[in-house]
């Protein structure tokens, strides 16, 4: 099941996500594929591409925390995007009923 999410949490740039999750949709649904897009900055850019791949397989509810861990592990520097912001966008969607 594919989710198309968009949001601009406080202090962040416009963030878009396409997330394919295992049905039925719930916070514990595992991520089958993921793309994060937007006008944010992440350096080095290629490490962000790798980070996206490593988010596959985790539950939706763990995405923000794991994102922040991977940012730190890979030595990425980001501006305009955080794991908390991604969680906020997902939670809004879950709250609205996927």
């Amino acid at each position: 099941m594919k989710l198309e999410l968009i949001g601009k949490p406080e202090g962040c740039k416009l963030l878009r996500m396409t997330i394919d999750i295992e049905p039925p949709p719930s916070p514990s649904s595992r991520i089958r594929s993921l793309s994060i897009r937007g006008d944010f900055f992440a350096v080095p850019e290629e490490a962000f591409d790798a980070l996206e791949r490593e988010l596959v397989g985790i539950p939706l509810e763990a995405l923000g925390k794991r994102f922040d861990e991977l940012i730190w592990q890979k030595g990425l520097e980001c501006a305009g995007i955080t794991g908390t912001a991604l969680d906020e966008i997902i939670q809004k969607e879950l709250h609205n009923g996927i």
Partner: peptide, 9 residues
């Protein structure tokens, strides 16, 4: 467009 942006978006 920026590196992380979707072209057609």
């Amino acid at each position: 467009i920026g590196y992380f942006q979707g072209l057609h978006e």
